[in-house]
């Protein structure tokens, strides 16, 4: 299997805090890769770098062998890399259906969007299918701001999916939601993976990560320290050190959780 997404020696500093230092990571096509690490180890920063929300001076990000380092978020998305946010970000005053339709314009020109209606019947049908897929079709006409936290996570997943991305970067998909919903989300991710989508998942819930991911990468202080199967990672003493060592508590939350 070739690496679909390669992160090669990326470094990022905020003032004196080194959020990422020479961080490298490969995501193979068709896999679900987990990314774990203590708070402040740089996981979200890495996501931000890949998806164009943060710029780096050192290192490279490649997608299908093509450099996408420091591309703008809309360009990265158009190439087929979708993401969700740790604290879910939905369009609260738009309806669920409208939320779904925001990303449908990815393949049309900017001038075209001005002279067409908000959506075509085909797009609405596809949007409803995806809402059905995450179990929210019954709320299609409601404002997204009325959803619960867990439902927002599902909506965010669904509205990214409408653009048919090949890679999905999920930032804590199981964070702060109840166990039955976690199970539901796990099933959804598995199903999408079976359809051929590649996942990179940041998560603190170990049970979730170990159960779902084929490979797990552990970050600590901006570096990748271990990468392997869930079994290997669990057995590695460096991982325990990173989580329990406590020597660098003062850096917690300095970069990004």
């Amino acid at each position: 299997m070739s690496a679909l997404l390669e992160i090669d020696g990326v470094s990022k500093a905020y003032g004196g805090v080194q959020a990422l230092s020479a961080c490298s990571l490969d995501v193979a096509e068709g896999t679900i890769t987990g990314l774990i690490g203590p708070n402040g180890s740089g996981k979200t920063t890495l996501f931000n770098v890949v998806t164009g929300y943060e710029h780096v001076n050192v290192g490279a990000v490649r997608y299908r062998g093509r450099a996408i380092t420091n591309h703008a978020p809309d360009q990265v998305f158009k190439l087929g890399i979708g993401r969700t946010f740790q604290l879910t970000r939905i369009f609260a005053r738009l309806t669920l259906m409208e939320n779904m339709l925001v990303a449908t314009q990815h393949h049309e020109g900017w001038a075209r969007s001005m002279v067409r209606r908000g959506s075509s019947a085909g797009e609405r049908r596809r949007a409803l299918e995806l809402l059905e897929f995450v179990g929210l079709a019954g709320h299609a006409g409601e404002a997204a701001g009325t959803l619960s936290y867990g439902q927002r996570k599902l909506l965010e997943l669904a509205y990214v999916l409408i653009a048919d991305p090949e890679v999905l970067l999920l930032d804590e998909p199981a964070g702060g939601i109840n166990p039955s919903l976690i199970h539901y989300i796990t099933e959804r991710i598995r199903e999408l993976n079976r359809q051929g989508r590649t996942f990179l998942v940041v998560e603190h819930n170990m049970e979730f990560v170990m159960g779902l991911c084929e490979r797990v990468t552990v970050m600590h202080q901006g570096c990748v320290i271990v990468s392997g199967t869930p079994h290997e990672v669990r057995a590695d003493p460096r991982v325990l050190d990173a989580y329990l060592g406590g020597a660098d508590d003062e850096e917690e939350g300095a970069g990004a959780a």
């Binding site: 978020p73 609260a92 990214v160």
Partner: peptide
């Protein structure tokens, strides 16, 4: 404008500009 795709993009910018950008909306334009 309100009923066009373009209007939907504007409303998305109103609610969360950075998120809209991450969904392929060319916010500047």
């Amino acid at each position: 404008v309100r009923r066009s795709r373009f209007g939907l993009q504007l409303l998305a910018i109103r609610d969360d500009e950075d998120r809209a950008r991450g969904l392929g909306v060319r916010t500047g334009r």
